[in-house]
């Protein structure tokens, strides 16, 4: 049976969600998408800046050629009202019910506002959205989001764009253990393929990456490295890692090693 990622009943063979921001050029973005082969690509809504019409049009036209499932976000929203209205505009514009819900509670580290997030998620689920909330690793907040009707959670590893990797591995692993049947996607703060591999080894269902790829010196190569790492981590999780031991356990058999006479050793033991 093929190992697939299922989000709100939609199955994907890839376990990567790729952000489309901060690439040097749309062409580089397209090549990175090919290399990472993501299940979905994230997009945003913005007003056109003065003279930016051409760039915006080029981004959209070239992104459509990649034929990927879109995941619009509510990035930069600080209130529930902003997030709801952004989600509604995104649904009409991108013609999808999927929404990556961001409600930011702190401007310094772009930390999710758990209260606003639960409130916004509750309303969006009622309105038929398939909500993927960008949340913290707090178990109770995650439970409230599930109660609100979210079927997927996207806890942060570290603040957006920092590349620090998982700051709180224990909380993330506990989340996996306590919510074994919920698709968990590690979103934000991953910087290296090893970070992605690590969370996949812990049993996360996928990762969302953007800056780690787009700001690499060679984004296409980095996209491929992340794809390999996610696949390796997933395989390791499915293979079942060995238990960690406190003391050394020789991997080479003791029996039959040279310069060591088993019979003599037992003979000595019997006489003492």
């Amino acid at each position: 049976m093929q190992d697939t990622l299922t989000l709100y009943g939609r199955s994907f063979t890839s376990r990567i969600l790729l952000g489309t921001a901060r690439y040097e050029s749309p062409a580089l973005l397209v090549d990175a998408i090919k290399a990472a082969n993501p299940a979905m690509v994230t997009v945003a809504l913005r007003k056109q800046i003065e003279g930016g019409a051409k760039a915006g049009e080029s981004f959209w036209q070239i992104l459509r050629t990649t034929n990927r499932e879109l995941l619009p976000n509510t990035a930069g929203c600080n209130t529930v009202k902003e997030a709801l209205n952004t989600a509604l505009m995104a649904r009409e514009l991108f013609e999808t019910d999927f929404i990556k819900l961001e409600v930011i509670g702190d401007e310094e580290n772009l930390q999710p506002d758990p209260f606003g997030l639960v409130e916004a998620a509750t309303e969006l689920v009622k309105q038929g959205f398939r909500v993927l909330p960008y949340c913290t690793d707090d178990l109770v907040v995650c439970r409230r989001l599930l109660d609100a009707g979210c079927e997927v959670l996207m806890p942060w590893a570290a603040p957006i764009g920092t590349g620090q990797g998982p700051r709180n591995p224990r909380a993330l692993r506990e989340l996996r253990q306590r919510l074994p049947d919920v698709p968990l996607i590690e979103d934000a703060g991953l910087g290296l393929p090893s970070h992605a591999c690590q969370v996949m080894e812990w049993g996360f269902d996928g990762v969302l990456i953007n800056t780690a790829v787009s700001r690499a010196i060679d984004p296409v190569r980095m996209a491929r490295a992340f794809a390999d790492a996610v696949e390796a981590g997933r395989s390791a999780y499915l293979a079942g890692p060995m238990p960690v031991q406190e003391l050394a356990v020789p991997s080479t058999p003791e029996i039959g090693k040279p310069f060591w006479d088993e019979a003599a050793r037992f003979a000595v033991q019997e006489t003492t």
Binding site: Y23, K47, L63
Partner: peptide, 10 residues
Amino acid sequence: IEIVHPSAGG
């Protein structure tokens, strides 16, 4: 009135 378009996002 705000008019928004598709844009790059993470």
